[in-house]
Design a protein around this nucleic acid. Structure first.
Length: 689
DNA sequence: GCGATCAGTT
DNA sequence: CACAACTGATCGC
C-alpha cells in the first residue's frame, strides 16, 4: 500500500498518485496506474473544484490508464483534462503557476512498469535533475538495463532520486518466482483439470484489480477458451485483452466474482451462480493467485500449492521481489532512493538501510580497508554450497560506482535521438539548459570491471553466441507497422511482453544442477504441515498431474502435483513472449543538438566524473561508435533471462587490453581489502566450466 | 446523504 | 504468506 504523499523533493509543484491535501495545489498531476490506492482524492470534490478553477491543470498518464480510468463514470469528469503520453516518448510539459505566471519546464518519459495494464514509471528531467518515480512495478532482474531511455549513450542516466516501490523490500521476500514460472504453473494446473471433460471448470479467485489480464489472455490463448468475467467494457478498445474475455458463463475458465464467492464454492457454485451445464454438475477447482516468496537460501520454489481438496494457491506477484528491487536500484544507482511503501512488519529506517548501500553516496570510490581475516566467506565455499544464485551480499563493502555498459537491446544507440513531443498549452519552446550529454562513446571495459561485475555463470552464452546479430536490433517492419497502425488503440502488451523468447532461469538452474551436487531428479515438495501439495518451479522433467478425483484422496502423496519451471523450458509456455515484442524504437530522425541536450539534461559526464574518475577515465575514451560483436551477442543472452545476472553482456573472455595504471591500482586496493581474491576465484571457476 | 477513516475479511 | 479492494461501523460536514 503506497504511502507516498504525492510530491517529490526535486519537483514539488507536481503531484503523482496522490490528489488530496497539499497536492490540491499542484501544477500538474500524474497517475502511474489505475489502482485505488494510487488514486486517493482523484474524484474528491476538492479536486473537482480545483479543476474547474485552474484550466491549465492536467492529469498525465499512459493511454491505457486513461482508457481504464475514463471507463468508470466516477472519473468521467476528467475526460477533457487527461493527456495521455505514449510509452517511451520523452515529452515536455510546461508547469505554469496560474497565479504568478511562473513557468517551469519538465520532460517526462513513461517507462513500462510491469505491474498492471497501463502501469508506468515516470522519469522526470528538468532543472533540478533527473528523478524516477517507479509507481508500483514488477521488473525482472536486468530489465532496467534494457530500458533505453534510462540510458544516455551506453551509460545509465545520472539520476538524482528514485521514488521506489518497496512493497517487498524485505529480505524475507528474497525471491519470487518469475512471471513466466508462475504463469507456466497455472497453465499446467488448468490444463490438467479442464482437459478431463467439458464439465471440469476452474475458478480463478482474483481480486478486483487490474493486473491479472496477462494471466487471462495467456490462458485464453493456450486453451482457445475465453475467461468469464463480470465486466469487460473497460477493455473495449483493447482487443488483445477483450478477445480472451467473455460474459458468457458457459466457459470452463472463470474469473468472475461475488461477495459470497468462497461460500458458493463450498457448494460447487461459481460466483456467477452456475452449478451445472446441460444438467450435469460441474467439477470445479479454485485457484487463488497469491504472492509466494522464498528466502535467500530456500530451494523450495513451488509455484502451485494445494490448499484443500479442490483449492489451490498459485504464485502471482504484481511487485518486484527483494532481489529484483536490489538489482533495479543498484543498476540505476541514484544519489537518493526513497521508499514509496513501508512493508508490513518493517520500518522506514530498515527499508532505508537496505536502499542506501545501493545508492551512489555509499558507493565510495575510496576502498575501505578490511582486514583479510574478517572476510566472511571465500567464494569457493560458496560455490560448493547449494545456492544457485550468487549473492552480492557476500560483500560487506559496497562496490565502487559500477562503470557498467548496459547495452540496450537495440542498436540505435548512437546518438541517442528521439522525437520529443511538447505537451503544453501555450508554448512549444524547448528547454534551454544545455548541460549536454557528451556524444555517446563506446567505452572500453576495463579489465577489472569484468571481475567486479561478474556474479554468475554465463552458461547460455555459447549458445547465444550462435545467434546472428541481425536477429536483434531493429524490430521487424511488421512490428513497426502494427504499432503505427494501432496508435489510437492503447497498447497494453507493452507492460508485460518482453523481448526475447528464451526462458529466464537457465542460469540458476545451470548453477544449481552443476554446482550443487546435481540434485536433478524430481522431488516432491510438501509443506511441513503436510497439508499442502506443490507444483514446483524447481524440479525438472516431472510431468504435471492431478489426481483423477480432484476431490478424493488428495491427501495421498501420489496426488502430489508438481510443476517444474524447466518444463517450461522444454515445453510450450512462452506465449508471454511469443509475439516477439520489442520495445518500440523511435525513428532515428536527426534531432537538434538542443533536443539531445534536453534529453540528457543533467546527465553529463562532468557531473559523473567526480564519481567515476578514480576508477577509470571513461570520458577520455573515444573509440568510436562501434559495439564489439561479442558484446552485442552476449547482450542477447542477457535479454533473455529475467532472473539471472544482468551483467553478462561482458564477454567471459575479457578484451585483450592491458589494464591501465589506475585499474591496477584499483585491483591492488581491492586485493588489500580481500574482495578481489574472492572475485578472482569466482572468475577462474567460471572460466573452468 | 456523502465522504473519510478504521477494522475486519478475502 | 501479501496484495488490493470490499464491507460495515463510526464520525463529521
Amino acid at each position: 500500500m503506497s504511502s507516498f504523499q504525492g510530491q517529490m523533493a526535486e519537483y514539488p509543484t507536481i503531484s503523482i498518485d496522490r490528489f488530496d491535501r497539499e497536492n490540491l495545489r499542484a501544477r500538474a498531476y500524474f497517475l502511474s496506474h489505475c489502482h485505488k490506492d494510487h488514486m486517493k482524492g482523484l474524484r474528491a470534490p476538492a479536486l473537482k473544484r480545483r479543476l474547474e478553477c485552474s484550466l491549465k491543470v492536467y492529469l498525465y498518464c499512459s493511454p491505457v490508464t486513461k482508457e481504464l480510468l475514463l471507463t468508470s463514470p466516477k472519473y468521467r469528469f476528467w475526460e477533457k483534462r487527461i493527456i495521455s503520453i505514449e510509452i517511451e516518448t520523452p515529452t515536455q510539459i510546461s508547469l505554469v503557476d496560474e497565479a504568478s505566471g511562473e513557468k517551469e519546464e519538465i520532460v517526462v518519459t513513461l517507462l513500462p512498469a510491469g505491474h498492471c495494464p497501463g502501469s508506468v514509471m515516470f522519469l522526470f528531467q528538468g532543472e533540478n535533475g533527473t528523478v524516477l518515480y517507479t509507481g508500483d512495478f514488477r521488473l525482472a532482474k536486468g530489465e532496467a538495463a534494457r530500458m533505453e531511455l534510462l540510458h544516455c549513450g551506453d551509460r545509465v542516466k545520472d539520476i538524482q532520486s528514485v521514488y521506489l516501490d518497496t512493497t517487498f523490500c524485505d529480505p524475507k521476500f528474497y525471491q519470487i518466482p518469475s512471471r513466466e514460472e508462475c504463469l507456466s504453473g497455472i497453465l499446467e494446473l488448468v490444463r490438467s483439470w479442464i482437459t478431463r471433460s467439458p464439465y471440469h471448470v476452474v475458478w480463478l479467485n482474483c481480486k478486483a484489480a487490474y493486473g491479472y489480464e496477462y494471466l487471462f489472455t495467456n490462458l485464453g490463448e493456450e486453451f482457445g477458451l475465453q475467461v468469464h468475467v463480470d465486466k469487460l467494457d473497460m477493455f473495449r478498445n483493447m482487443p488483445d485483452i477483450l478477445h480472451h474475455l467473455t460474459t458468457d458463463r458457459s466457459t470452463q475458465i472463470h474469473a468472475c466474482r461475488h461477495p459470497k464467492a468462497e461460500e458458493y464454492f463450498q457448494w460447487n457454485k461459481l460466483p456467477c451462480g452456475i452449478t451445472s451445464k446441460n444438467r450435469i454438475p460441474l467439477r470445479t477447482i479454485s485457484i487463488k493467485p497469491s504472492t509466494m516468496w522464498f528466502g535467500e537460501r530456500t530451494r523450495k520454489t513451488n509455484v502451485i500449492v494445494r490448499t484443500g481438496e479442490s483449492s489451490y494457491r498459485a504464485c502471482f506477484s504484481f511487485h518486484s521481489s527483494y532481489s529484483e528491487i536490489k538489482d533495479f536500484l543498484s543498476y540505476i544507482c541514484p544519489v537518493n532512493a526513497y521508499p514509496n511503501v513501508i512493508p508490513m512488519g518493517t520500518t522506514v529506517d530498515k527499508v532505508i538501510e537496505i536502499l542506501k548501500p545501493l545508492c551512489r553516496s555509499s558507493q565510495s570510490t575510496e576502498p575501505k580497508y578490511k582486514p583479510l581475516g574478517k572476510l566472511k566467506r571465500a567464494r569457493t565455499i560458496h560455490l560448493d554450497s547449494d545456492e544457485g544464485e550468487e549473492e552480492d551480499d557476500l560483500f560487506d563493502d559496497p562496490l565502487p560506482v559500477p562503470l557498467r555498459h548496459k547495452v540496450p537491446n537495440q542498436q540505435t544507440l548512437y546518438p541517442e535521438v528521439f522525437p520529443m513531443t511538447t505537451v503544453s498549452q501555450d508554448q512549444p519552446e524547448k528547454l534551454r539548459q544545455s548541460t549536454g550529454c557528451i556524444e555517446a562513446k563506446s567505452i572500453k571495459t576495463p579489465l577489472w570491471a569484468n571481475f567486479i561485475d561478474c556474479e554468475e555463470s554465463n552458461s547460455e552464452s555459447e549458445e547465444e553466441l550462435q545467434i546472428p546479430a541481425s536477429s536483434q536490433g531493429d524490430p521487424s517492419p511488421l512490428t513497426h507497422h502494427q504499432q503505427k497502425a494501432n496508435v489510437e488503440v492503447p497498447q497494453w502488451e507493452v507492460f508485460f511482453k518482453r523481448n526475447g523468447d528464451i526462458p529466464d532461469d537457465s542460469l540458476e538452474n545451470f548453477c544449481s544442477s552443476t554446482e550443487a551436487g546435481g540434485s536433478q531428479s524430481p522431488k516432491l515438495f510438501n509443506d511441513s504441515d503436510g497439508e499442502s501439495t506443490h507444483i514446483s518451479s524447481q524440479n525438472s522433467s516431472q510431468s504435471t498431474h492431478i489426481s483423477e478425483q480432484g476431490s478424493q484422496g488428495w491427501d495421498s502423496q501420489s496426488d502430489t502435483v508438481l510443476l517444474s519451471s524447466q518444463e517450461r523450458n522444454s515445453g510450450d509456455i512462452t506465449s508471454l513472449n511469443k509475439d516477439g515484442y520489442r520495445p518500440r524504437i523511435k525513428e532515428n530522425l536527426p534531432a537538434s543538438q538542443m533536443e539531445q541536450n534536453v534529453l540528457c539534461l543533467k546527465d553529463t559526464y562532468s557531473e559523473d566524473v567526480n564519481v567515476v574518475s578514480s576508477v577509470g577515465e571513461p570520458t577520455t575514451v573515444s573509440s568510436g561508435k562501434h559495439i564489439p560483436q561479442e558484446r552485442r551477442l552476449l547482450t542477447i543472452s542477457n535479454n533473455a533471462d529475467s532472473q539471472s545476472s544482468s551483467d553478462f553482456e561482458i564477454p567471459s573472455t575479457p578484451e585483450a587490453e592491458l589494464p591501465k595504471q589506475e585499474h591496477l591500482q584499483y585491483l591492488y586496493e581491492k586485493l588489500a581489502t580481500g574482495e578481489s581474491i574472492v572475485l578472482a576465484k569466482r572468475k577462474s571457476s567460471l572460466l573452468d566450466t
